[in-house]
Design a protein around this nucleic acid. Structure first.
Lengths: 249, 249
DNA sequence: CGCCAATTTGACGAGCCTCAACTCGCGTGG
DNA sequence: CCACGCGAGTTGAGGCTCGTCAAATTGGCG
């Protein structure tokens, strides 16, 4: 019954959508946008709810409007790895695929802008603007996945935690077209276990490293889910890769 | 001078190309194919040669015709992670990007079918067949990267080695539209160090695990670079994920 | 106030890394 | 022809990081 739980919510017009210029619809205008607007519907999920199970039929694709979801993969013995993090403006689902390849779980309250898959696929064929934006987004996701490979393969537990915080800070800043600087606050819509699944660690190790970073003044904690970073550059240093995060794309 | 080293080779017509129906040109016919044929040129690299350095300008995109290449990323202190494996029919380069994001190295002798980037980008806009094939291939790569995340994050050294062998066997079999079964032979166009970089291990650990798998009869070695697998299902069991590898896509 | 889930902390061990020595195959040149 | 060097690979000893198991603590909420 995962689907029943996703009740529709009041829809907003695309013009005032917070992800209007970052999602798959970014380059659409006029008729194209109207067409998307006509076929869209919202779904809302609570933190912890499963959006789809790997192997289940999936009849829609969607953009994340607000909140956060994780794509998760498992070995038979239960070992779990998160293989994707869906943040606002990210795209969910694969056109041309009937069955979900990964389990998708809302890690915080989540709002999706959905399109039925078949009509959306048709749109992709007729409408090069959408298709090329989707290609661009997929290529970006592939780059992000490759950065994650470096993290999983070569970084220490401490560097992994710092890297995750850096990513969340950058994504949050990008939504408001800024670049993280100085003292910042990061909302952590993830349990320690979800962080562990993302980072290829155990939740105990995550907890220990968070404590260490706090003890050393790299971060401060306000409750369990809000992180204050006194110096963003310090955090980036701790993450191991010294790049500046590239242009504000 | 990496580019000078890539001398042109005798070109073959697309009709008899071994990757004709798997590469980015797979769905092209008639005029489209002729256009690609008119603009293509070959480049050849020897094992160990660098195709491009991360950060270098890159004026072409390409399909791998034969051989193997690795995409590689590094932290400043030198830790290295391979983040992509390019096998025959795989696509190299990102349309719309001037500068290579990763260092590309030939891990065996390599033959590329290249297209200058600008004309190819124009083709992508005019020609939905090519664009949609590229989207499909990018999505496949993303899936492969996500499988790799699971491997790096959660598998033991032994499982990692077995997984790599399974992947190479599957890719080699797919090229001739078959499925690996029973006793098979795998060509390993990778040094122990390249394997380690791919698997997030050290070369010593790779060597030890290879020895262990050999001692236990899971594999046999013919020289350093040829692996004989008496029972493919046994190898898949050792890899940790018990799936059958899905349909012959 | 008390329960429960999430998180933290501690003790200990396993797996993989580091450093180092040794082997193997192969091409080179005396 | 064979010593030699060299790069790739193998093997060994010991240590560190992170995982496992277990217990204590915290915080939210009825």
């Amino acid at each position: 019954m995962p689907h029943d739980a996703a009740l529709c919510a009041t829809q907003q017009p695309c013009e005032i959508c917070p992800i209007r210029y970052r999602a798959v619809c970014a380059h659409c205008e006029g008729d194209e946008l109207a067409e998307l607007e006509g076929m869209k519907f919202y779904r809302r999920y609570e933190a912890g709810q499963v959006v789809v199970w790997a192997g289940d039929r999936m009849d829609f694709v969607a953009s994340v409007i607000a909140g956060m979801a994780g794509l998760t993969q498992q070995l038979e013995d239960g070992r779990t790895q998160m293989v994707g993090l869906l943040l606002p403006s990210d795209f969910l689902g694969r056109p041309g695929r009937e069955v979900a390849a990964y389990t998708v779980t809302a890690t915080s309250d989540l709002l999706l802008c959905c399109f039925r898959r078949k009509p959306f696929e048709k749109l992709l064929i007729d409408n090069p603007r959408i298709a090329s934006r989707l290609l661009e987004m997929t290529l970006d996701e592939l780059d992000a996945a490759r950065d994650w490979l470096l993290l999983l393969g070569r970084k220490s537990a401490r560097e992994k935690i710092a890297s995750l915080l850096v990513i969340l800070a950058r994504r949050a800043a990008a939504l408001v077209k800024r670049r993280p600087e100085g003292r910042i606050v990061i909302e952590l819509p993830l349990t320690r276990e979800a962080m562990a699944d993302y980072l290829g660690l155990t939740l105990e190790t995550v907890s220990r490293q968070m404590s260490t970073l706090k003890r050393e003044g790299v971060i401060e904690l306000d409750g369990k889910r809000r992180v204050i970073v006194p110096s963003f550059v310090r955090l980036v240093t701790e993450s191991g890769d010294d790049s500046d995060g590239g242009p504000l794309s």
